[in-house]
């Protein structure tokens, strides 16, 4: 993962099932990144289909920590399922209270746990395919 600087926002891409295990892995990753004053975070919920209480708790934990350091949290893309779950927990209103992150700010991506492993696997596979010698035209 690239180092986060004062001029960049952390983009957290949540997995399809954001449960206790994924939340624990993500917490470790984010806490390493939360060293700056006024941190900026963009949470991407576009892949999320299920969130449990541990996942919701993790999002709340991020919001509290960012708020303490006068930072900003913003929802990136969001699935209908995630929007429903955030509304259910009343967290949609809290997320809207944060100041807006400038659109042109550079992002450093964080993908937690298994989702990251899957992404890396896919990237490796793609890289392997591009490296394969192409058949010569007859």
């Amino acid at each position: 993962m690239k180092a986060i600087t004062e001029n960049s926002a952390l983009l957290i891409r949540l997995p399809e099932r954001f449960n206790r295990d994924e939340a624990r892995l993500l917490r470790a990753e984010i806490e390493r990144s939360l060293t700056l004053d006024q941190p900026c975070m963009i949470v991407d919920f576009s892949n999320v289909k299920e969130i449990d209480t541990a996942g919701l708790d993790m999002i709340l934990h991020v919001m509290v920590n960012v708020a303490r350091q006068d930072g900003a949290v913003q929802v990136g893309n969001i699935s209908a399922e995630a929007a429903t779950m955030l509304e259910l927990a009343g967290m949609d209103r809290i997320l809207n209270m944060f100041p807006r992150i400038p659109d042109d700010m550079a992002t450093v991506q964080v993908v937690p746990g298994r989702a990251r492993a899957k992404q890396e696997e896919a990237e490796e596979e793609q890289a392997a395919q591009t490296e394969q010698p192409q058949p010569l035209a007859a």
Partner: peptide, 18 residues
């Protein structure tokens, strides 16, 4: 399960705390 009428989406909820 929760079906949200406005979003037209069914969300599976397996956490009994919710």
């Amino acid at each position: 399960k929760l079906f949200h009428l406005d979003r037209n989406v069914a969300v599976k909820i397996s956490d009994r705390n919710l």
